[in-house]
């Protein structure tokens, strides 16, 4: 029977973590004590067994596919800060933030809130992404939006007077939900751009609104 102290020191010696004095002590045990030698051998077997399992699995892994999957995921996740928002921040940021602040942390937004939201939009304080099934165009200034939580595929986003962001698209993906028509409003906490975008979707303007984000 080997003492706990001896076992611990054998482990440290096996790992190459002993001082010269400790190493000399352990080597003495290994020379004279069969139990110590057996224990030392077991440490080697455990290490080998674990390494063998990893090696076996590692040979079967396609690390190229790993990066492709990661790339696919992160390409949807580029932080969005549409330049158009900067111009309207002073005028509209506070209104938006007040509206958003009313419902922060709420999983669902009461329908009544939409009245405020729509009022804000009418006042030109929101950033608006219209989806109307129009033709696709490329290369507009606001295409950063196409990489964010609200993306317009094959679409174009155009800055309009520094206040309105309009995009025409056959299809848009908003927070994993596909909308084929209607109007999507995108808002962001400008004090903390790392916070998720808040996306509002209104199906066929005037109809029942819904929220994503």
């Amino acid at each position: 029977m080997i003492s706990e102290h001896k076992l611990q020191l054998l482990g440290a010696y096996f790992d190459g973590e002993t001082t010269p004095e400790e190493s000399a002590e352990v080597e003495g045990w290994l020379e004279s004590c069969p139990d110590s030698r057996a224990e030392f051998e077991r440490l080697g077997n455990i290490k080998l067994a674990m390494a063998t399992r990893v090696d076996t699995e590692m040979q079967q892994v396609d690390f190229g596919a790993l990066w492709k999957n990661i790339e696919s995921e992160i390409s949807k996740e580029v932080p969005v800060r549409a330049p158009v928002v900067e111009d309207t921040l002073e005028e509209s940021g506070s209104v938006w933030q007040k509206i958003v602040g009313l419902f922060s942390g709420q999983p669902l937004v009461p329908v009544g809130a939409m009245a405020l939201l729509l009022a804000a939009v009418v006042m030109g304080t929101g950033d608006e992404l219209k989806l109307d099934g129009g033709d696709a165009n490329d290369g507009a200034p606001g295409t950063e939006l196409a990489q964010g939580a609200a993306t317009s595929e094959e679409g174009t986003a155009q800055e309009n007077g520094g206040e309105l962001l309009e995009a025409q698209s056959h299809l848009a993906f908003v927070s994993g939900v596909e909308y084929e028509s209607g109007t999507v409003f995108v808002d962001q906490d400008m004090d903390d751009p790392s916070q998720p975008l808040i996306v509002w979707h209104i199906e066929n303007e005037g109809a029942e609104p819904s929220q994503g984000g």
């Binding site: 399992r53 990893v54 699995e57 590692m58 079967q60 892994v61 690390f63 790993l66 990066w67 990661i70 790339e71 992160i74 390409s75 580029v78 932080p79």
Partner: peptide, 28 residues
């Protein structure tokens, strides 16, 4: 936002990461 740079970071650590994850998962 340079994804190629992030790819380089991934590729330099992915094998070690896989070995760790394998300690917690039943299969690769």
């Amino acid at each position: 936002g340079d994804q190629r740079a992030f790819q380089a970071l991934v590729e330099s650590t992915q094998q070690k990461a896989f070995a760790v994850a394998l300690g917690y998962c039943k299969n690769r």
